[in-house]
Measured scan of single mutants.
Amino acid sequence: EALLLQRRRVTVRKADAGGLGISIKGGRENKMPILISKIFKGLAADQTEALFVGDAILSVNGEDLSSATHDEAVQVLKKTGKEVVLEVKYMKD
């Protein structure tokens, strides 16, 4: 459990079709971090076996998301290339 509370760096390699394969919720306007709300089976994020629903995305390719709005986070995630480095931390409810 202590492991979950540490920052983790996960590299996601996207397939030619399909994006990261995650849905996010939260954002500055909700006074919440950007959280992974869904991981789609078989897509890139799922294949890492290292990302979990409830993980907060702290940064994407080094771009800090700690004070991002939901829309800003969506845009940052959309413009990523084939390889995406996510810094995440599991957030307890």
Rank of each mutant, 00 (worst) to 15 (best):
D46V: 03
E1R: 08
D71V: 07
V88H: 00
E49D: 15
E72L: 06
G26L: 00
M32D: 06
Q47I: 08
E1C: 07
R13C: 10
V10P: 03
S23R: 13
A56L: 05
L35I: 11
R8W: 00
M91L: 10
G18Y: 10
A50W: 03
D93I: 10
E87G: 04
V53D: 05
A15N: 11
V53S: 04
L20N: 00
E87F: 05
E87I: 10
K89H: 11
S59K: 09
V60T: 02
R9P: 04
R9N: 11
A56G: 06
I24F: 05
R9C: 12
F40Q: 14
R7C: 04
E49N: 15
D55M: 01
Q47D: 09
I24E: 03
N61Q: 04
G26D: 01
K14E: 07
L4C: 11
K38I: 04
D16M: 10
R7N: 10
I22C: 02
T48F: 03
A2M: 15
I22D: 03
V10R: 03
V12G: 00
D64W: 03
T48M: 05
L3R: 09
A15W: 09
I57M: 03
Y90V: 05
T69Q: 04
A45W: 04
K92Q: 15
R8T: 00
R8V: 02
L20D: 00
K38D: 14
K78N: 08
G21Y: 00
E72Y: 12
R9I: 12
D71F: 10
T48Q: 06
K14T: 11
F52L: 12
I24N: 00
I22L: 10
E49W: 04
T48G: 08
L4S: 09
D64N: 09
S23H: 12
E1Q: 12
N30D: 15
K14V: 08
G27T: 00
D16S: 13
G54N: 11
D16N: 10
V60K: 01
S59H: 04
D55P: 00
V85F: 07
L3N: 14
K14Q: 09
Q47S: 11
R8Q: 03
L51W: 02
A17L: 14
G54E: 05
F52C: 09
Q47H: 09
K89P: 02
K92H: 12
A68I: 06
V53L: 05
I39A: 02
L20E: 03
G18K: 09
M91P: 06
S37N: 10
K92E: 15
Y90A: 13
G42V: 08
G21V: 03
K92M: 15
S37C: 12
L58V: 08
M91Y: 15
I36C: 00
L58R: 01
V10E: 03
V88L: 06
K14G: 13
L65W: 03
R13P: 08
T80P: 10
R13L: 13
I36T: 03
A17N: 14
E63L: 14
E29D: 10
L4K: 13
K25Q: 15
A2Y: 15
V12A: 06
S66A: 10
L3S: 12
A45N: 06
L20P: 02
E72M: 09
I39R: 02
S66C: 10
Y90H: 12
R8L: 00
F52Q: 11
